[in-house]
Amino acid sequence: MDIHVNDISYVYQKGTPFEEEALSNLSLSIQHGIIQAIIGKTGSGKSTLIGLLSGLLRPSKGSITVGEDKVTATTKKIPFRSKVGVVFQYPEHQLFAETVYKDISYGPTNQGIPAEEIKNRVYHAIDLVGLDESLLEKSPFSLSGGQMRRVALAGVLAMEPSILILDEPTAGLDRIGSEQLLSLIHHLHQQKQVTIILVTHQMDEVARLAGQVLVLEKGQAVFNGSPVELFSERSRLDKLGMEPPSLTKLIDRLNERIHPPIPTSLFELDQLVAHLELRRKVGNNE
């Protein structure tokens, strides 16, 4: 299910003194099954884009096509809302039901899915996020922060979306929590072939997961391409005011001394180690 964003603009509070254009003339194509990262500073229009892609907002201008469904400024009912799952920032703050089971089943129930099927989905979802089934009868508020976040994620996965939007999924988690969540995302993408739209400030996450990355600045797309392309050109990063991933930073430091420079397209420590090994062997042979 491909996504095509065609020359859209979005204006908040049109016709009031607080009128503000959050996105202007943005175009973007997201192929089905890829991980698309979206990065940009606060106020760059990321949240608005999430709202539009998830069908919660209509563009003021232009159109968005998801699969067969097209949405413009005048579309009444947005048809693709149920195909797009959104996990907002700090999703554990949106839990509400007495039990984990009830909370996860909220989405599928709203979709009008038969009870038997809902049960299957809840069990499947809790399994996907790596939580034990014994938690299903507990109150979500008795769980740890990391567990609550995974329950919230399960609540979205139980709706079986073909497109999954994740807004800062690791915000506020410590290393173990973040790592669990990232490998979960990776796993989901591999296993379920869903399109994942990852909104994040963490360049390490972008480098590790994304196939394509969009950079927003003041409501406009200033870059769209592969992470390698983005992170290998240091001057552009500086101009965008962005930090490279931590491994790229280390390579940059090494390159202050080492010639010819190590390529900045390496995003995994193993790759860097292998590269250095190779260089050392070549060096010893000379």
């Binding site: 410590d174 290393r175 280390l250």
Partner: peptide, 18 residues
């Protein structure tokens, strides 16, 4: 203790292992 090890240290360790 569930904390990040700085990337330079990880590289150092990996190279020493080699």
């Amino acid at each position: 203790w569930g904390l990040d090890v700085p990337i330079g240290i990880l590289l150092h360790q990996a190279l020493r292992d080699k």
